[in-house]
Design a protein around this nucleic acid. Sequence first.
DNA 1: TCGACTTTGTATATTGGTTAAACTAAGTTT
DNA 2: AAACTTAGTTTAACCAATATACAAAGTCGA
Lengths: 386, 386
Amino acid sequence: MNVTGDQALVKKINKSLILHTIRKHPELSRARISEITGLNKATVSNLVAELQQEQLVLEAGPGESSGGRKPLILHFNAMAGCVIGMELRVKQMTAVLCDLNGSVLSETEVPLRRHDLAYTFEQMKTMIAGLIDEAPPTHYGMVGIGVGVPGMVDEDGVVLFAPNLGWEMVHLRSMLEEHFAIPVIIDNEANSGALGELHFGRGQDVRHLLYISAGSGIGSGIIISGELYKGSRGYAGETGHMSIEAEGMPCSCGSRGCWELYASEKAYDLAASELPAYQTRELVRHAAEGDEAARSQFRVMGNYLGIGLTNLINGFNPELIVLGGALSEAREWLEEPMQQVVAKRTLPYHKQQLEIAFSALGSRATMIGAGFSAAMHFLGHTRVMV
Amino acid sequence: MNVTGDQALVKKINKSLILHTIRKHPELSRARISEITGLNKATVSNLVAELQQEQLVLEAGPGESSGGRKPLILHFNAMAGCVIGMELRVKQMTAVLCDLNGSVLSETEVPLRRHDLAYTFEQMKTMIAGLIDEAPPTHYGMVGIGVGVPGMVDEDGVVLFAPNLGWEMVHLRSMLEEHFAIPVIIDNEANSGALGELHFGRGQDVRHLLYISAGSGIGSGIIISGELYKGSRGYAGETGHMSIEAEGMPCSCGSRGCWELYASEKAYDLAASELPAYQTRELVRHAAEGDEAARSQFRVMGNYLGIGLTNLINGFNPELIVLGGALSEAREWLEEPMQQVVAKRTLPYHKQQLEIAFSALGSRATMIGAGFSAAMHFLGHTRVMV
DNA sequence: TCGACTTTGTATATTGGTTAAACTAAGTTT
DNA sequence: AAACTTAGTTTAACCAATATACAAAGTCGA
């Protein structure tokens, strides 16, 4: 249904605007908020008073005067509640306990021996229960759980297909919500990572961002106008199966020449020559020790990474691309060949104002992003499009 | 700056909602609008009265009663003003005079002998002036001009680069606005085509649509959440330069193996064997007459079209793909091999609820879409995101 | 044909949000 | 100490949507 306008909506828009303004800029006074947002001073005062009552904003004493009355500094009360952000990986499960602004309060990790649903779900419940126990007492308590999973997720939080876990049609959101009675958000691992980098990594103030998660495969999270783009059914971003060799190697997906066969860890198995190791971390170590086979492997992969990136750049015209996932540990060896290919093959105009960076959050991007989704879901975010 | 909420905004949102509801559904009464939108009957009455005063809505007499007072049927007054939609092509220039709802009132075409700016701009001015003369007298008169051009356009209506015209950094919008003193909207030809198909072709009620314009090259218009996605600088959609053969044929763009070398009219020049003709229309004629070389050429191109489409489907997960441009005339010969490849290579979940269709508007999609952009710019469209 | 019922559209009073302007509070500068 | 600045609050006015009552104009069964 359509959203109609009334006074309640106006209040929602303005309150949301003020809350997120305070959240993003610490050390603001009511007067500054009025200037920044364009809202009347009285409006700001009223809505801030409500936000204080709701424990979402705190007064933190007087600030510096610039020739008049001292301003009263306001803070977003990130400790009004807690969220949990998780990442489900093939070999382990990691999770963080975060405040409402994405700061990590606690971090845990557990190895996964098997991937069957029963076992994994038990482990998840134990891990989440542990973090809930650890959580400090807050006004709202635990307000949400976000989970990033290595597979396709639909809009109802159903994991449709996660080949590396052997999962199909797992109603993960409803399972967790029924057990913990807390709102749960399930997302693809790359989508969560994209949100993590957007809000806490390299992506501050970026409108259109592409997050590429290269590990055992390649997935990507697409941020358009500051928001996750999920496609018509929630499956957007499966760029690992973009064919870059029309009649190349056959892929398990049914296609041929898929990008991830050449530019993810899958390439190790298909490498032309013998490699000294078949795990990224090991291979990086060998490369650092001067092993030519390892270095050459990364050069080739960097080249292919660049080719796929070029395709995405020409199509999406993003402001920023962030490379994350396990492969980002090989940055030292991948970056130069990759950048060279991109420079050579990208359309000239698309290169302007384009930055390609490696993840600032590293392997924590996904779980931090997942936790942040949960926090944003709790805080709400209403705004207008013109 | 941020959009803040106040009563004026509420009114704008609701008025916009009512106007576009009437525009999209003819034969509505105030009572039905109230039901559909969720707005109070009194609100609808008030805003409709204003829209009537602004000549944007007309009362069209009583409708059928269903056991009570007869409803007063309202119509969107598409003839409150006119717009012009143009398409600039390599060999000709086409334009339509449209009402505010995209209905074509008049259509013209002029061949282009040269492409230098001075000459082309003269021709444009003449063409537009002719259509302005033809326009029937309306309350608002001519309210906008939309132009689709074969090249990259930035957010200020500057044609950055149009290789087929030999244009670079042409400030087309300001040139036309200064001359005609009417709002002008310049867009890439594929973007305008996407809008045309979205609103008047196959795309009604579709949220995420991809319009592929295959002709002398391949461009695409990306519609996300019902809106054109232009990327960070306005250059999104250059999918013709997506590499589908990592080390394939060198392209003028600096890359290799670009999709449009294999699946646009550029493929004719690079065909393995001799072709009976080198223009799509001619080649289609030969294929229809049984020429095996022509048919085989289309089969190969259909195959490559499918490979590129698969890449886009996996990445974007659109609901609908519309194929337009000159190549769509070869639909009879392209469609089957293309659909086969897509069926074989696309990820299984992405196939669900995906439709691939050929353009319903044909060669008119771009100019109709361009005109519609101008009309929408005049009518405005304010709404809320939650 | 009459009266009961339906449906459409308008008028009225109320609600509740933002706002401008005046005001209080609390500083700095000269 | 007086003049000036800046921060935040109070007040009254405004205005758009709403619920409710109401008027207008139809249908339908007996």
